[in-house]
């Protein structure tokens, strides 16, 4: 099976007034189905820019980004929205749940934009919440949930559309160490079920939970290492695609 993600010499240049900032200067890597990849680097290393491009929130200045074999750079705004909706799942550092909206409704949101009928939406959301261990909390509002629980809701929301890949941007940045382990455990479990995950972090301990670590510095990849001591290869491959 072909790779889920393939970046070819991707560069990104921002123009800030007179100055040009090269956030990415020719980055190439690919992610195979079932991989759990962490992207590391200091701030300003280009890892966030890379994540935005992976998330189709930004487009590369040059180079190509192929997601499931489709060149994302050639898609229109609406098509990008569809890609984000159907093929990607986002988990953010700040959880980014809608306030005054129940856990279930937050999880249903991607399905709303995918025009899934209400009944099926509810069932899928229930199932996704159960997968992250939040069965029974469907009716809670974000402010009634702990940080770890909110992040689980966010993970359920990322899962619910059965995306090709989950993109997590510092998912444990706002959590204490116990909860961090808990959340990483959920990611590992999902990965074991065959879901491809790319995660940005700057903490080596968090990166240690993943099977592959890519390190960015000054807009370039400086290392790309695989370790076997973290997650084992997925057993339920294909489930997430």
């Amino acid at each position: 099976m072909a790779e889920v993600v393939r970046l070819e010499e991707v560069a990104k240049v921002y123009t800030m007034g007179e100055e040009k900032v090269e956030a990415l200067r020719g980055v190439s890597f690919s992610v195979a189905p079932g991989e759990f990849v962490s992207i590391m680097g200091a701030s300003g290393s280009g890892k966030s820019t890379c994540m935005n491009i992976l998330g189709c929130l930004d487009v590369p200045t040059s180079g190509a980004y192929l997601l499931d074999g489709v060149n994302v750079g050639e898609l229109s705004g609406n098509q990008l929205a569809e890609v984000r909706n159907k093929k990607l799942g986002f988990v953010f550092q700040g959880f980014n749940l809608l306030a005054r909206t129940t856990a279930r409704e937050n999880v249903e949101l991607p399905l709303v934009y995918a025009q899934v009928p209400a009944g099926r939406r509810r069932a899928l959301a229930q199932e996704a919440l159960a997968r992250v261990g939040l069965a029974g909390r469907e009716g809670h509002f974000p402010n009634q949930l702990s940080g770890g629980q909110q992040q689980r809701v966010a993970i359920a929301r990322a899962l619910v559309n059965q995306p090709s890949i989950i993109l997590a941007d510092e998912p444990t940045g706002n959590l204490d160490s116990t909860t961090t382990v808990e959340i990483m455990g959920i990611f590992q479990e999902l990965n074991r079920q065959g879901i491809t995950i790319v995660m940005v972090t700057h903490e080596p301990e968090v990166a240690a939970f993943t099977g592959r670590q890519i390190v960015f510095r000054d807009g370039l990849i400086v290392s790309d290492t695989r370790s076997d001591r973290a997650t084992r290869p997925g057993s339920g491959e294909g489930e997430g695609s």
């Binding site: 609406n78 929205a81 909706n85 809608l98 934009y113």
Partner: peptide
């Protein structure tokens, strides 16, 4: 603004 950002990120089109 943030809510709009979330909605766009999870697949809302401009039209939505």
């Amino acid at each position: 603004t943030r809510e709009i950002g979330i909605r766009i990120a999870i697949g809302a089109k401009e039209r939505d």
